[in-house]
Nucleic acid binder design. Structure first.
Lengths: 181, 181
DNA sequence: GTCTATAAGGCGATAGAC
DNA sequence: GTCTATCGCCTTATAGAC
């Protein structure tokens, strides 16, 4: 039983938006790869932007859940540690990982997209939850970079051809170490 | 005595490419801001890509100089430390800083641009110069992230409204600390 | 060195048949 | 749910006058 068209559009769009960028990917391209016409796409999605919205919605919800959780906790080193581990676990999920890569690579092109604006805001809120109000600039940079380390590892070690699991472990280790600044 | 048109084109293009992205910025826009017509732009630059090339050339040369320097040195902690400080000093220069931001934000859109491909290659080479061949994955991630920290600090702390100098100091501190993994 | 005018083509999006 | 056909707009880029 073959997937429905809507899902296939999302898959192709996500891959091409990630690899070539949102603006450089035309709806004609996507349609051709799927063996349908552009017009068929418009039956499933109102606009090109709407495809993006459908892609990133779940990521926004995930971030909001994480934010709600961390705010229900005392601001302790233990909470920070667990936040980093939960964030890493989210990224480990292949669906979220794909979305996260798409987001990294289209920050500028999609800077005005409503859902992406919210995602950016939630990310900044998450980062600020990592720092106590009295934290020094050095601590702030270090804590913020912790979440970032989890994203960066994937492409930093791409030449080493290490098993996915080992890269995962290394990035989490570095991230946790950044919390001890 | 007003700057020549070629330089003004570069300034406007750099700003708009950085803020809105390369693809989202049309030559018409740039021309209008300068009070000339599109055709005038084509007198100074062969293509839109050519404007980018003129912008990033110096950054490539700077990276190649840095690479040459680090390769002339023994692979010691002291060399790594000095590399991070030299890299930070480069970024401190306002011209390179502007170019670096432009590069960060247009990685995907300009992934096929010849000069940007070279810049990416040099960056990866620089990163691999930071790691000895026997380094663990954790060390590799940590060292690589050191150079990255220098870029990231600027927008990570943008809400704190700290003086530029203090942000600079904090990022360098975190970067150096990442070298002690 | 800058202009007007235009070529040539791709884009997102829509109407209406089937 | 997918098609054909097309609209209107914007783009990069060029030719040739001044």
């Amino acid at each position: 039983m073959r997937e429905d068209t809507r899902t296939r559009i999302q898959e192709v769009a996500l891959r091409r938006f990630t690899e070539q960028g949102y603006e450089a990917t035309s709806l004609r391209e996507i349609a051709e790869e799927l063996g349908v016409t552009k017009a068929a796409l418009y039956y499933h999605f109102k606009t090109k932007d709407d495809i993006v919205a459908s892609l990133v919605e779940k990521r926004l919800i995930e971030l909001e859940k994480l934010l709600e959780w961390v705010r229900s906790r005392p601001k302790t080193p233990e909470t920070r540690r667990e936040l980093v581990e939960r964030y890493a676990a989210d990224l480990r999920d292949s669906r979220h990982h794909g979305i996260a890569r798409f987001l990294e690579r289209n920050q500028t092109a999609l800077r005005d997209h409503p859902t992406l604006i919210k995602i950016r805001e939630r990310m900044m809120e998450l980062i600020s939850e990592l720092s106590e109000s009295g934290a020094t600039p050095t601590e702030r940079v270090s804590y913020s970079l912790a979440l970032f380390a989890l994203h960066a590892g994937k492409w930093l070690l791409k030449e080493d051809e290490l098993p996915e699991e080992e890269i995962q472990k290394a990035t989490v280790e570095v991230a946790l170490r950044l919390l001890d600044a």
